[in-house]
């Protein structure tokens, strides 16, 4: 972490103060909503997918600084990835991309990974129903 004073790295604070891709999406191809019952955080992730490639990702999140920053970061990491590549994104990768998270906040990155899994399985379910 570069910001040694507060609990969060500069990158976490940047994504928290200026979240990327925050908002809703009409008729998403994949929609995932996951929550953490312990702290009450909830993340909703919207995906626009064409020919197996994630073209756009948006999120809405209720939660702490780490929850919002990991939501923002995961949408950035998802864009342009294939479904197979996206499935390989782990919570550790999201946390690392943010220059780390305090140990007590690692579960927030799990929220991002679970949101991503939920949105992709929603997409695959919808696709299965169509074809």
């Amino acid at each position: 972490m570069t910001n040694k004073l507060g609990p969060y790295s500069d990158k976490v604070m940047d994504h928290f103060m200026n979240p990327r891709n925050m908002g809703e999406m009409e008729d998403p191809d994949g929609l995932g909503e996951v929550g953490n019952p312990v702290c009450g955080d909830v993340m909703r992730l919207y995906l626009r997918i064409k020919d197996g490639i994630i073209l756009d990702a948006k999120f809405k999140t209720f939660g702490c600084g780490a929850a919002i920053a990991t939501s923002s970061m995961v949408t950035e990491m998802l864009k342009g990835k294939t479904i197979e590549e996206a499935k390989k994104i782990t919570n550790q990768a999201v946390a690392e991309a943010l220059d780390g998270l305090p140990p007590v906040k690692m579960h927030c990155s799990v929220l991002a990974e679970e949101g991503l899994e939920a949105a992709i399985s929603d997409y695959e379910r919808k696709k299965g129903q169509i074809s």
């Binding site: 609990p7 312990v38 702290c39 305090p102 140990p103 007590v104 906040k105 690692m106 579960h107």
Partner: peptide, 9 residues
């Protein structure tokens, strides 16, 4: 926030 594990939350 200075806790070492998530159980500290």
């Amino acid at each position: 926030i200075r806790g070492r594990t998530e159980e500290d939350l």
